[in-house]
Design a protein around this nucleic acid. Structure first.
Lengths: 218, 218, 218, 218
DNA sequence: TATGAATGAGGTTTCATTCAT
DNA sequence: TATGAATGAAACCTCATTCAT
């Protein structure tokens, strides 16, 4: 899976948009490798093979490119997860699939994954955006009688942090291949799903979906 | 609860040790407030009321003070949690208490908490240290028939991330007062403890313990 | 009194000339507000509502627009002062009127005034141009027996600096309304005009003249 | 007359004070040569033969060194002029001497002169400081019946601008040697002193005084 | 003529670190 | 041990100017 995610989708765009895409790609790589603070604008520009001043033609400062990148990643991921779950009504399945797909998809694009992980840490708005989708499924599960919990910000934060833990493990390379299923199973148990059902649902086959991040409206 | 944690315990030490303690205190505050990158050695020294050059008499570089601080915090916290749980044999209670005490204690020393949160993120060694203690209790729970899970790194990481989520919520100030209990309850459910027992144990009274961090062997 | 001095007079010109006029107007405003160094070509272009590259279609560099602007202002002012004094033969009156009209006219167009003040400071050629007209009147006054001084560059420079002082006071807003008359009176006294005549002449009514700067041959 | 005015007086000071003096000397030269805006901190440091970072050990930014320099120059000049006029009671003489000495002294230290000229333009506080001394002499002259004018801010500004004109002429090198006397004479005439007395006083011999600027308390 | 993205030198400032005292 | 001035690399950012369209 390519690491040039904005760039690859931008071949047909104008020169300006391609430069912008190259800068965002470079920023993703560097934010992921070095973190936001340690990544320098000059190095982003160098990696994008443009002059340092060109950076400022497209972005006001490092903060701006960071939030643009984060929004682009999050928006794209969210959209694809949504699409991949169209037609699934059962909240237990939806919840499990969401976690598994998220970890698997992002885990397959390590640069992005790390960038997203940091972004979730840095931009609370991102957490909130993810939380919105989540809350819907959790409440649906309660309504369906499958979940036996109080759906509130604490639960959502805990749930999200579990996903992040799985993503972190996947990205660090030390985790077993089925880590996404393990995390999903633990989540279902936490939500009140009986252990055997939790185990079964979190392990059932999942059609492969390929992640392809393309520039958003942003 | 004092923010001068190394310094306060160092009154009886020599001048050199006191200077060192003052530097560590200053570092904790600044790492917590600004993050590791943004905290400057000059400002650490200024806040510790020593000349900037003095910093390098005590620490090789900024990395060193960071890891020393992290180790000191983690070691101290771990030791105190251990002590507070002496005599408790039931793994369900131990697990619940660990989470609750950790969140409450650290949550009451915001500077430290934030520093620890960042440190856990930055230094994997810290996670491992915490993980060791945890693993013992989880395995004990399995042996006691109270937990119905596979104790492995995935579980531990997920468990730790849930604690961090609670700590994060507490530090951000947006969480309800009982967030520590909520998190502990969710953890117990995840581990296979029946919902009613999980609820009861995670809410039972906990004797207050005051956190007082003192310099370790470091 | 309009601040769009080149532009307003250029409505009948071709597109190219209008663009040029817009650039000069924008430059006047920015030079006046921020000074020559701090005014950027990009902002001049933005304020003129043209692309930054367009600037270089019309001017070789920033220096060129500055001198063109200065020349245009000075030429226009000089010409109008001349016209306003046609028919006046008495050197005492001419001298007094010159100072008074200059301060009043330019003082009423603050952007211009500040630009001119800076330009007089920066471009000696401007001082010389103004000095030429002045010298004629001063020598006429000597010939008429009204002035009792040696007309030389020192006198001219001193005289000009007195006018600038008055202009500066007017632009800074802190000066009394009759500052132009006060300055003119002091000049006449310096030139040897008896105090009572100096006072009377410098205070006599002056028909209002409106300043309207239009593009010159430039 | 040396151009190393802070430095030369600082030989006996500590190393830090000498570095600071070297920076101020370098700043004076560059402000005079290039103007405040065009002078770069890096070049000031290079000319002072210190590392660029050293600048910021001593001054917060370019503004700070500029005002420190301006204050030092103005303070030193003012003090010396005051001392040179001790014992002189006649306002006509004092006024004339002030102008002549100011132009001669500063005119002999071209770097300083240009720096002061720019500073007077840039920092109104400097003008005010000079104005204070002036006002005393002017009012004294009125009280003594020698001057026949209204002493107010307009008069003071005009008077100061005449001095600046003379200084400017002296610094530009184009002015005659007696420019200081010429300006003083014109001022006296403006103030109402009869032409023959103005001429005589402004030309009488003046004991030489050497300017030696040393670091102030600043 | 007009555009506006791209350039890259150079500006200000910060900061970890060294070193003479 | 302690000091704090000095260092210089490197960060961010601006801006006059060029050039392909």
């Amino acid at each position: 899976m390519s690491n040039r995610l904005f760039g690859s989708g931008a071949a047909h765009l104008g020169k300006s948009a391609r430069t912008r895409a190259r800068l965002m790609d470079a920023a993703v790589e560097l934010f992921a490798r070095d973190g936001f603070e340690a990544a320098s604008v000059n190095e982003i520009a160098r990696r994008a093979e443009v002059a340092n001043g060109t950076f400022y033609v497209h972005f006001r400062d490092k903060d701006e490119i960071a939030s643009k990148v984060a929004l682009a990643i999050a928006g794209s991921v969210t959209r694809q997860l949504d699409e991949a779950m169209i037609g699934i009504e059962d909240a237990v399945e939806r919840t499990s699939m969401g976690t598994r797909r998220f970890i698997d998809l992002i885990g397959n694009a390590p640069d992005w994954g790390r960038a997203l992980l940091r972004a979730l840490w840095t931009f609370p708005a991102l957490r909130d955006s993810v939380a919105g989708h989540l809350r819907d499924d959790l409440e649906r599960g309660v309504a369906q009688g499958a979940f036996d919990v109080q759906v509130d910000p604490v639960l959502i934060d805990v749930f999200v942090s579990m996903v992040m833990s799985g993503l972190f493990g996947r990205l660090s390379g030390s985790a077993p291949d089925d880590i996404a299923s393990r995390v999903a199973e633990l989540q279902l148990r936490m939500l009140g799903v009986p252990a055997n059902r939790a185990s079964a649902v979190s392990r059932q086959d999942l059609p492969t979906v390929s992640l392809s991040l393309v520039p958003l409206s942003a």
